[in-house]
Simulated scan of single mutants.
Amino acid sequence: MSERTRALRSDAERTVRTILEAAERVFAEDPAASMEQIAEAAGVARTTVHRRFASRDALLEALAAVAAREFAAAVDAAHPETTPPLVALYQVTVNVLRVKRQWPFALDLTGPEGGEPDCAHAEVEQRCDHLLRRAQESGVVRADADLAWAKWIFYALIGVAARIRECEPDVAATRVVDTLLCGVGTGQGLIRTGSQPGQ
Results as ranks from 00 to 15, higher is better:
residue 1 M to R: 07
residue 4 R to C: 09
residue 5 T to C: 10
residue 6 R to A: 14
residue 7 A to W: 13
residue 7 A to V: 12
residue 11 D to W: 11
residue 16 V to Y: 11
residue 18 T to I: 09
residue 18 T to L: 07
residue 19 I to N: 03
residue 20 L to S: 03
residue 21 E to A: 13
residue 21 E to V: 11
residue 22 A to T: 05
residue 23 A to H: 01
residue 23 A to W: 03
residue 24 E to I: 02
residue 25 R to F: 14
residue 32 A to W: 12
residue 36 E to M: 06
residue 36 E to D: 13
residue 39 A to C: 01
residue 41 A to L: 04
residue 44 V to C: 00
residue 47 T to I: 09
residue 48 T to M: 00
residue 48 T to H: 03
residue 49 V to G: 02
residue 52 R to W: 12
residue 52 R to H: 15
residue 52 R to L: 08
residue 53 F to K: 00
residue 53 F to T: 02
residue 53 F to N: 03
residue 54 A to Q: 11
residue 56 R to D: 00
residue 59 L to N: 03
residue 63 L to Q: 04
residue 65 A to L: 07
residue 67 A to C: 05
residue 71 F to V: 05
residue 73 A to D: 13
residue 77 A to H: 04
residue 78 A to M: 04
residue 84 P to T: 00
residue 87 V to Q: 08
residue 87 V to S: 09
residue 92 V to A: 02
residue 95 N to C: 01
residue 95 N to D: 00
residue 96 V to E: 05
residue 97 L to E: 02
residue 97 L to G: 04
residue 98 R to C: 03
residue 98 R to G: 06
residue 99 V to I: 03
residue 100 K to D: 10
residue 102 Q to G: 09
residue 105 F to L: 02
residue 107 L to Q: 01
residue 110 T to L: 09
residue 112 P to Y: 09
residue 125 E to W: 15
residue 125 E to D: 15
residue 128 C to L: 15
residue 129 D to Y: 14
residue 130 H to D: 14
residue 135 A to N: 00
residue 136 Q to S: 01
residue 136 Q to C: 03
residue 136 Q to N: 01
residue 139 G to C: 04
residue 139 G to P: 01
residue 143 A to Q: 08
residue 144 D to R: 04
residue 144 D to K: 02
residue 146 D to Q: 03
residue 146 D to A: 02
residue 153 I to W: 12
residue 157 L to W: 07
residue 157 L to V: 05
residue 157 L to T: 06
residue 159 G to S: 11
residue 160 V to R: 13
residue 160 V to P: 05
residue 164 I to A: 10
residue 165 R to Y: 13
residue 166 E to S: 15
residue 166 E to K: 15
residue 166 E to P: 05
residue 170 D to V: 06
residue 171 V to Y: 14
residue 174 T to R: 07
residue 174 T to V: 10
residue 175 R to A: 12
residue 179 T to Y: 05
residue 179 T to H: 05
residue 184 V to Y: 11
residue 184 V to R: 07
residue 184 V to D: 08
residue 186 T to R: 06
residue 186 T to S: 14
residue 187 G to K: 00
residue 188 Q to S: 13
residue 190 L to E: 10
residue 190 L to Y: 12
residue 191 I to C: 04
residue 191 I to Y: 08
residue 193 T to K: 14
residue 195 S to G: 10
residue 196 Q to R: 15
residue 198 G to R: 01
